[in-house]
Design a protein around this nucleic acid. Structure first.
Lengths: 195, 195
DNA sequence: GTCTATACCCCGATAGAC
DNA sequence: GTCTATCGGGGTATAGAC
């Protein structure tokens, strides 16, 4: 595998792919650039041609995520606040986060501490989620309500954590997440039903 | 603060305290021994008088946890399998994990990747949780059921994650966890009721 | 666009004086 | 029980040839 380089220069994408896998399995801190480079059959130095730093690599991942959160926030903010809106926001959130399968969820679960530290300054994922909680719960939501909404939003991550070690398949994890979210929102969003 | 050393030799306990705080806020990998030592006004080398390695420090934390899990497993295994047993196991689990407040839960949330890697060989927290899931769900539990049980067991950790950034108090986080667990177990454990 | 070679720093850990 | 000094190693990052 080492030494064989292709010409098409999708190298940047390949670095992302390998980094995503290693960050997910070993964790961001425990993954060295040498490891990433070795897997690709290139050297550490070559990495620096494509990315300015190790942080720049991880930043690429949640910048994507954050961008899709922003889209959802923008859409939701522009809607008239009908009784059905909260459930629809949640449905879209779930679709967005489950979009790329469980890869991103697994990455987020393994690296949420690193993500917090390396977040794009002022306005990381944490703040976005808070805003979506507010959009779903409305201005008068109590803390217990906001907690339930927040936990429902994170249900995919939770299911990933629970499914780890239980040998659950991706489909089983996803449906458990859906089910858990439905339980949490049952009293709060009567119009939110599973499937 | 630096330089002032006390004689009573509670140093070992102080190291644990500082390490717990730093591991929780910065993460295990991102916390250096020098940082821990500096906070205590001693040097890195002095740390090695009290602990053999960095890993030995973190191991102390979840060894406690794991020991209390083992107690619960032993107790549950010795009980006759009545219909009320599953709910009672869960109640005890919740009491045990919430016992020391949220300090341990926060630590576990911030370091679950590190915990996985540094687990006491063959039989970390992951395996314990699986066994407790089996004890609650019984031998015939389906995967969706086991997922729900597993998520209920982890509900304190989930509530901590959700509460972070929401500004929830410890009491609010705990009651959200209790509520979430009740939702997840509602259909499964009819005799489990919140408070 | 990718390499070799290297600088520099901090890490965890050890030795031995006090 | 704590110190100074130091080791070996690996981390991120850079310079400059090809």
């Amino acid at each position: 595998m080492a030494g064989v380089r292709r010409k098409g220069s999708d190298t940047r994408a390949e670095i992302q792919e390998v980094a995503l896998e290693l960050f997910t399995t070993r964790g961001y801190d425990a993954t060295s650039l040498r490891e990433i480079a070795e897997r690709l059959g290139i050297t550490k130095a070559a990495l620096y041609y494509h990315y300015d730093s190790k942080e720049a690599i991880i930043r690429g991942f949640f910048d994507e995520r954050v961008a899709s959160f922003d889209e959802l926030i923008a859409w939701a903010s522009a809607q008239p606040r009908t009784p059905e809106l909260p459930a629809e926001i949640f449905r879209r959130w779930f679709a967005v986060t489950a979009e790329a399968g469980l890869r991103m969820a697994r990455f987020a679960v393994a690296n949420h501490t690193a993500i917090r530290d390396h977040a794009p300054d002022e306005g990381g994922a944490r703040e976005r989620i808070q805003r979506i909680v507010a959009l779903i719960g409305g201005p008068d939501a109590t803390m217990p309500e906001r907690m339930r909404i927040s936990m429902a939003l994170l249900s995919i991550n939770f299911a990933v954590m629970a499914g780890q070690g239980l040998g659950a398949s991706d489909a089983e994890i996803l449906s458990a997440a859906r089910e858990a979210a439905a339980s949490l929102l049952r009293d709060l969003l009567p119009d939110y039903v599973t499937d």
